[in-house]
C-alpha cells in the first residue's frame, strides 16, 4: 500500500519543488495523510536582528504566506488525486494569488527551526480565507499568526 504514499508524496513534491523562493528560504513540508506542517529550517541568513538574535519579521511573514498558499494548492490537488483521477500531474498546478495578508507578531522568532500549519476557513470558487499559526518549541506558544485572502486560480 506504499503506492498510495508514494503517489501523495510525489504530488506534494510537484507542488513545492518548482518554486525557487521556497528553496531559497529552505522551507520543507511534513505530510501525515492530508495534514501538512511546514518547516522553516533555520539558517544564519534568515536573521533580522543579530543582537537578540531573532528571525527577520519579513521571513516570518513569507513563511506563513507560503504555508497558506501551499495548503490551498494541496487541498485542491488532494481532491484531484484522491477523487478517482489518480494520475499525478506532471506540470506544476497553478497556485492561488495573495490578495492581502496580515501578520500578528506575538514574540520574537528564536534562532532555530520554526513550524506552521494553515487552516482554510473558507474556500470558494474565486476567493479563499486562510488562517496560519507558527510555533517553535511549544505548539501552544505561537510566535506568529496570520490571516490572508487569496484569489483562486481559474479553471480556464
Amino acid at each position: 500500500m506504499q503506492v498510495v504514499k508514494k503517489r501523495r508524496d510525489a504530488a506534494l513534491a510537484t507542488l513545492v519543488a518548482g518554486v525557487p523562493y521556497i528553496r531559497f528560504l529552505n522551507i520543507t513540508f511534513d505530510r501525515r495523510g492530508d495534514e501538512l506542517t511546514s518547516v522553516l529550517n533555520f539558517d544564519d541568513q534568515i536573521i533580522g536582528n543579530p543582537t537578540l538574535p531573532a528571525i527577520h519579521g519579513g521571513v516570518t511573514a513569507a513563511f506563513l504566506e507560503t504555508t497558506a498558499i501551499i495548503q490551498l494548492g494541496w487541498q485542491e490537488l488532494w481532491q484531484e488525486i484522491e477523487g478517482g483521477d489518480a494520475s499525478v500531474p506532471h506540470s506544476l498546478p497553478r497556485l492561488p494569488k495573495t490578495i492581502d495578508f496580515t501578520v500578528d507578531y506575538l514574540r520574537s522568532g528564536l534562532p532555530r527551526d520554526a513550524y506552521a500549519r494553515a487552516r482554510v476557513n473558507r474556500s470558494g470558487r474565486r476567493y479563499a480565507s486562510v488562517h496560519v499559526e507558527a510555533w517553535q518549541d511549544n505548539r501552544s506558544r505561537l510566535f506568529a499568526q496570520a490571516t490572508g485572502h487569496f484569489l483562486m486560480p481559474s479553471d480556464t
Binding site: 518548482g18 518554486v19 525557487p20 523562493y21 528553496r23 531559497f24 528560504l25 533580522g48 527577520h56 519579521g57 519579513g58 521571513v59 511573514a61 513569507a62 513563511f63 504566506e65 507560503t66 506544476l92 497553478r94 497556485l95 495573495t98 495578508f101 501578520v103
Partner: peptide
Amino acid sequence: DKRLIGDPATGVVHGGAISTLMDT
C-alpha cells in the same frame, strides 16, 4: 533575483520577498 521567484511560469517575485522588503 531568480532565487526569489514565486511563480516559475512567469518569473514573478514571491510576495514574501516583497513583504520582507517593506518590513525592513
